[in-house]
Simulated scan of single mutants.
Amino acid sequence: MGKYCFKKLVRMIIVMFLISFFSFAVIYFAPGDISDMYVTADMTEEQRENLIAELGLDKSMVEQYGAWAMKMLRGDMGVSLSNKSAVWPQFQERLPATVLLMGSSIILSLVLSIPLGLWSGYKKNTWVDNLISSISYIGMSLPSFWFGMLLIIFFSAILHLLPSSGMHTVGNESVFDTFKHMILPCITLSIGHVAVYIRYIRANTIGQLSEEYVLTAEAKGNSQRKTLFGHVFKNTLLPIITLLGMNLASLVCGSFIVESVFGWPGIGTLAMTAIGARDYPIIMTYVMLSGFLLVMGNFLADLLYAFVDPRIKRGGTRNGR
């Protein structure tokens, strides 16, 4: 297991290096001069040249990347170009709101998709299966920003049941008030993942129901319900482990849109503002955080697979891959 973890860790480091390098290169070769974000109109030519040299903008891309990477490894994410404040404290301030929304959407996705996927697979080709499958297809095709605006119009503008934006009502920071503000963005962020999880669980349930161990359990007199939840259930969840790992980054990136629609004060809103202002230090920090969540999610998913799937050898590869 140690060798397996080491290989995965090395791959994770290589992927993070490639993400950082190509992201930095995209910004470096983007139209416009980055130095214009630092230079003011009242600067003399000498002051301008000194500032550019101090910032290292007169060096090659590789040299600039190396200097930036060393700062990142020391925990220095740079200074925001728009508000002249350190970048990482701004992320630390907003990260709890994004984690709260992301964690709630993961829980909601699993709570809804697991029973629906199992029931759909168990009732294959019946009206129940057709109904659940139709709903999941619709969920996969809904644009999150469009669905979020529909929820705002219906539940906030028409019914006046739920708040349309923000995380708290002014002067009220109770848990219940936060919960009310979180309902609509959480549903919007979860709907696409619920649909995908249902399809995977359904397909895996259908496959597991034809396995010999299910026929053996039924021959021993086990009820269909006991067989479904006692044997098939845990085996159908194995693909979900991988999907959850892969979707960690997509939940953060998805919150980019959802947080903007609902005015949720997370890192997605911060990144959206940074893109509009061409605030490159914040943009790069957001890209690196998303990339880290992606590779870390896959790393944790592989570790979980190694513990729960007996077909994975202790040395490290899955059969058939």
Rank of each mutant, 00 (worst) to 15 (best):
Y4D: 03
F6P: 07
V10I: 15
M12Y: 09
M12W: 11
I14W: 10
F17H: 09
L18H: 10
L18C: 14
L18G: 09
S23T: 10
A25F: 12
I27Y: 01
I27K: 01
Y28D: 01
F29S: 08
F29Q: 05
D36M: 04
V39I: 14
T40W: 05
Q47F: 04
N50C: 08
I52V: 15
D58V: 15
M61R: 05
M61Q: 10
Q64K: 09
G66M: 11
G66Y: 15
A67E: 13
A69Y: 14
K71C: 10
L73Y: 11
R74D: 06
G78T: 06
S80K: 00
S85Q: 07
A86C: 13
A86Y: 13
W88T: 10
F91G: 05
L100I: 03
S104C: 14
S105T: 12
I106D: 06
L108Y: 03
L108I: 08
L110S: 00
P115L: 11
L118Q: 02
D129R: 15
D129N: 12
N130C: 13
L131V: 14
I132M: 14
S133Q: 15
S133C: 11
L142F: 13
M149Y: 07
H160G: 13
L161K: 12
S165G: 13
H168W: 15
T169C: 05
T169W: 06
V170K: 05
G171M: 10
S174T: 13
I183C: 07
L184I: 08
L184F: 08
P185E: 04
I187P: 06
S190N: 03
H193I: 13
V194A: 09
A195P: 03
V196E: 13
R199L: 14
I201E: 01
R202V: 05
R202F: 08
R202L: 05
A203T: 13
A203G: 14
I206V: 14
G207R: 06
L209M: 15
E218V: 12
K220Y: 07
N222R: 04
S223E: 05
R225Y: 11
K226I: 03
T227I: 06
G230P: 02
V232G: 00
T236R: 01
L237N: 00
P239D: 02
I240C: 10
L243F: 03
L243N: 00
L244P: 00
M246A: 11
L248G: 01
L248R: 03
S250F: 12
G254E: 07
V261T: 06
G263A: 00
G266R: 00
L270W: 06
T273K: 12
A277Q: 10
A277G: 11
A277V: 15
I283D: 01
M284D: 00
M284Q: 08
Y286T: 04
M288K: 02
M288E: 03
V295F: 03
L303D: 06
Y305R: 04
D309E: 04
P310S: 08
R311L: 12
K313Y: 12
G316R: 07
G320V: 10
R321G: 09
